[in-house]
Design a protein around this nucleic acid. Structure first.
Length: 323
DNA sequence: GGCCAGGGGATTA
DNA sequence: TAATCCCATGGC
């Protein structure tokens, strides 16, 4: 990395796992390094985050962040990362609350109890989840990387490789669909330029103080944008607007609700009701545990995943599902 | 409200 | 080589 770097350390951090956080599908610009740390670009700055568990076997450990985030005071920088990594939230209490009388959630939390919901940039999250629709995570990451290389500002160099910021509203709002052809975004390119123009035109309040609006108003605005439906709107609210109660329903979470909570595959409103009843104001966090869990099972234990598949039509409360 | 195209690449059959 | 799938949405 060219130029100076700053170091930020947080001690005794619990309920924190880099793989759970950066590989759970909430963010797309962080990449695992050979030493286990993660490198990424946040708000126009390059950063590397590593985690060292405590030596005495206690829970908790040390988070170390190197970044070229220089333009602010140390205390503002500390505040930024504390907020970005959601360090002030008591995840232990939330996990205990969610897994009480819920065996499925208990198992999910055992596989990915180190998840934290990142507090990301609204604009980047909106465009990223527009790209995520009907798409898979490796390709989403590749699409976003190409978008940044093609349209983002160059912010530095890492081992000779240039690093690019996420493109600005102003930049994307003056493009036409064909300017994004090289990014291979498919039919999503149209949504991106249309949404960028809308945000440039009337998104000022949304970008500055959007999270202070009533959640119904936020959702109404998001749904009025081109290419934004309920799933994308929920992800934007959860991952960039601190709305931890929303419960984004994608195909994987529908599978969980169907196979592990015994609900009709297509009954989206019943699933929302169930989430509201069981997970309350932590629906979004619960969703992340379940999403990560079902994907882990599908990847690491195909036999169990197939058995869950076969039990699709069975009524089960989850207790009967084998380990 | 149901159906299907949109774009493209990875994985599976 | 063909079929299927992917953190959906828009438009008919």
């Amino acid at each position: 990395m060219s130029g100076d770097l700053t170091k930020q350390v947080f001690e005794n951090v619990r309920d924190f796992d880099l793989d759970d956080i950066f590989d759970c599908g909430q963010c797309f610009r962080w990449n695992k390094q050979p030493d286990g740390s993660y490198s990424g670009v946040v708000e126009g700055s390059f950063a590397n985050i590593s985690f060292l568990p405590s030596e005495n076997g206690e829970a908790g450990g040390r988070v170390t962040i190197w970044s070229n985030r220089l333009a602010e005071s140390p205390s503002l920088r500390e505040k930024f990362w504390r907020n970005y990594l959601d360090l002030d939230r008591d995840y232990d209490a939330i996990k205990r609350l969610l897994s009480t009388e819920d065996a499925v959630m208990g198992r999910a939390i055992k596989t990915c109890g180190g998840i934290r919901i990142l507090n990301q940039n609204k604009w980047e999250t909106l465009i990223s989840f527009l790209i995520s629709q009907n798409n898979n995570i490796p390709r989403i990451k590749a699409c976003i990387e190409r978008l940044c290389v093609e349209q983002g500002r160059r912010i530095g160099r890492l081992r000779g490789k240039p690093i690019y910021a996420f493109p600005s509203v102003d930049r994307l709002s003056v493009l036409r669909e064909e300017h994004l052809a090289d990014c291979r975004l498919g039919y999503r390119a149209k949504y991106i330029v249309e949404t960028a123009r809308r945000i440039a035109y009337d998104g000022g309040a949304f970008l500055s103080t959007g999270e202070q609006m009533p959640i119904e108003k936020i959702e109404e605005y998001l749904l009025s944008l081109s290419g934004v439906g309920p799933k994308v709107a929920n992800c934007v609210m959860l991952f960039s607007m601190k709305k931890s109660e929303v419960f984004p329903l994608d195909v994987w979470v529908r599978r969980v609700m169907n196979r592990l909570y015994g609900m009709g595959e297509e009954n989206v409103s019943a699933m929302k009701d169930c989430a509201k009843r069981n997970f309350g104001s932590y629906g979004g966090i619960a969703q992340q545990y379940l999403f990560h869990y079902i994907r882990t099972v599908a990847r690491d234990n195909p036999a169990l995943y197939e058995r869950l598949r076969l039990e699709e039509s069975d009524e089960t409360d989850g207790a009967a599902v084998p380990e």
